[in-house]
Design a binder for these strands. Structure first.
Lengths: 250, 250
DNA sequence: GTCGTATTGCGTAAGTTATACGCAGAAGTA
DNA sequence: TACTTCTGCGTATAACTTACGCAATACGAC
């Protein structure tokens, strides 16, 4: 029972939104949801998402594992909130008078940069449509970029999902490649030596001709001199596609 | 030490490719990698990825948990192989003389249908670039669609990633919404009642005007009369964007 | 045939993990 | 001052992955 507006969200999410406050009875609280989230982010930053366990986070705070459950209903809630808070605040797009396309491109690159700084966010299993504060704030910004495009609400929403989906899946691949390289002992930034060779060793030439054409071209083994080039390639394709629609609409 | 070509892949992957065979000494094997993978898929289909544990899969086969480790190095390997095998074989694209665009669209819809049939595949954490047989076979098919487009190898690869990334992220959202609905007790196929209301309860109107415009439009609460409409929207945008590039190239 | 050896299935056990439950005590309220 | 409410957390359980090693088996060589 709270003040009438039942959100249907977990209590910890309402806490994060500031919609609900902790009661002020009882003993003084030694922890806070924010501190717990910060601790979880710290562990994930330093040792990866795998290392985030209730016990580990509690240890970081000098608390007992079970004390966290006064602030968070379940481990998944904590991880979701940590992923949300690990996102930086969204960029200030669109600037006054800025066109939708450069604005949305800036938005996409900002999300890319955020994910590059905290790759583990991509490992967090998604358990529903976004309802956490920061994720919704990012949504809001992207929607603002699209307001004067003539697209209807459903199209604006679909466009936003298109762009964020691209950013996330691109960064997932980039991250995985980097991780595979590093675990192979090579310094980050080196080329993906081995992937082409692995495929060639296992996929025979006759059944995979188109693949071998790519392998032979050296695409897999070339150093990615400019990492952002690949990202921009896909982004420009998507923005081109959206532009086609918007121009046809006007 | 095997026949000279060291793939650098886990043994179980080589087994799945057929590149390596089990030695034929020792007692007769009661299990096989394929049977283990099938059992894992069966559990995931019936009870979700969460239910897939070494013990559970072994029980399904009437075997002891530890016996699986003769075929699979680790649980993650098994899950990855199960996800790979859960994909149907890729569609026969392009048909003779088929243009790249309809062919690639068929490819994308086929992947969508596969993921719809086995939503748990999307929950499998990705641990590197694709090296499993079925995943590579899908790659091959998409690359074939793009062979006569004038795009270079790197662009073909980036285009393929663009499309598959879209399919996966779209299906992730579709799946999550469906799951959220079902866990809320509503029958699948019903509208996303509640999401708009949840957001409205928690995100205040002044700070989230663009979002409220979408909420007010009812987009979130309308029944998705044609589920595939949303999917095709994004797909057409992406294909439009690729077409712009191909046309500019010619 | 017979022996040696590689390889099997699997028992045991160790180490993590999330989390249900309930208690003692602290702080606010009447 | 008494009562209620909430906190931190100890205990305990059940599930999980997986290292290690042993006895039994069936092939390959002679």
């Amino acid at each position: 029972m709270n003040d009438g507006t039942d959100t249907g969200l977990p209590t910890s999410f309402e806490l994060a939104w500031g919609v609900r406050e902790h009661p002020n009875k009882g003993p003084k609280r030694g922890l806070s949801l924010n501190r717990i989230i910060e601790a979880a982010i710290g562990v994930a930053d330093a040792e990866g998402l795998r290392a985030v366990s209730m016990g580990r986070v509690a240890a970081e705070l000098g608390a007992a594992p079970m004390s966290l459950y006064r602030y968070v209903g379940t481990k998944d809630e904590l991880v979701t909130l940590a992923a949300d808070a690990a996102y930086s605040p969204p960029p200030d797009v669109p600037a006054a008078g800025e066109d939708w396309r450069p604005a949305l491109a800036r938005w996409a690159r900002a999300e890319r940069d955020t994910l590059r700084a905290r790759p583990w966010v991509l490992q967090v299993p998604i358990s529903g449509p976004p309802t956490t504060p920061n994720a919704v704030a990012w949504m809001e910004r992207a929607l603002r970029c699209l307001e004067k495009t003539g697209l209807d609400a459903g199209e604006r929403m679909a466009t936003l999902l298109l762009v964020t989906g691209y950013v996330r899946s691109h960064m997932l691949i980039e991250t995985q490649i980097a991780a595979a390289l590093e675990s192979a002992g090579q310094p980050p930034g080196a080329e993906l030596t081995g992937y082409g060779r692995q495929l060639a060793a296992v996929a025979d030439r006759a059944r995979f001709p188109a693949l071998h054409a790519v392998i032979d071209s050296g695409t897999f083994d070339e150093p990615a001199d400019d990492i952002d080039e690949d990202f921009d390639f896909g982004l420009e394709r998507i923005l081109d596609g959206i532009e086609v629609l918007i121009n046809a609409r006007v």
